[in-house]
Amino acid sequence: MSGANTVTEQLTPAGRAIEHDSFAVIDREVGPHAYDEHQWPIVRRMIHANADFDFNGLTDFHPRAVEAGLAAVLGGPTRVVADVEMICVGLSQPRLAHFGMTTHQFISDADVIADARAQDTTRAVQAMRKAHRLGLLDGAIVGIGNAPTALIECVRLIREESAKPALVVGMPVGFVSAAESKDLMATLADVPWIVIRGRKGGSTLVVAAIHALLGLAEASQQQAATKG
């Protein structure tokens, strides 16, 4: 590769040094793991985001997850469809802009709230349905970190309404249906996914996973430029 990433790194030398030192600590202390060279940077950044080594083991990948995610990022412009605004705010806009990516979330839209009340469902369910109606799910990276019902609905849309995301980063946190929603996502073979098994998760983990994916994509760009 031609050198260190520039777009997907911290903007100052001091910031980069702290982040790199943190990754080095994680590499020393994590112990054995079964992740490959492309999966590990994603898991490592997730551990970095929460200082929780349990994500070594809890994080599970569809066999084509990283490949599909990189293809979506590099083949853009690609959408990130999130269950909550926190994911959209947490993602680095300069990093997304480098790849021509945009973010979308509908959790607080008036029509979403009205439909949730009328149909006795959650806002998260209706937000996923709205994204599908607008044609935003197909080819998108779907990031779900808060609402298990959003992930369950995403699975239903894939199975019953032919939604075709490029990748689902399914990491909702919680005590009601969180673990079950991720286990359900992991039954899908045709749509790649990254999930955290069990109750743990959260929007910060989704952001970390997507940022790691962007870092891998920039490294791939550099490698292609060097070969060219």
Rank of each mutant, 00 (worst) to 15 (best):
S2H: 09
V7L: 08
E9V: 11
Q10M: 11
Q10W: 08
L11K: 15
L11W: 12
A14T: 12
A17S: 12
E29G: 00
G31P: 03
H33T: 09
E37L: 12
A51R: 07
D54S: 14
D54Q: 10
N56T: 09
T59A: 13
F61I: 05
R64K: 13
A65S: 14
V66L: 04
V66C: 03
E67H: 09
L70V: 01
L74D: 06
T78V: 07
D83V: 04
C88N: 12
V89F: 14
L96C: 05
M101Q: 03
Q105C: 13
A110N: 15
Q119A: 12
D120C: 12
D120E: 14
D120W: 09
M128P: 02
R133K: 09
L134K: 04
L136P: 02
L137M: 14
L137Y: 11
D138N: 14
I141S: 06
I141N: 03
G143A: 08
I144G: 00
T149Y: 03
A150P: 09
E153A: 10
E153C: 06
C154Q: 13
C154H: 02
E160G: 06
E161F: 07
A163C: 12
P165N: 10
A166E: 11
L167A: 11
V168S: 08
V168E: 13
G170Y: 11
P172F: 04
E180R: 09
E180H: 06
L184V: 12
P192Y: 06
P192T: 11
K200T: 02
K200A: 05
G201H: 01
T204S: 15
L205P: 00
L205W: 00
V207A: 05
A212P: 08
A212K: 02
L214M: 12
A217V: 00
Q221T: 00
A224P: 02
A225D: 10
T226A: 08
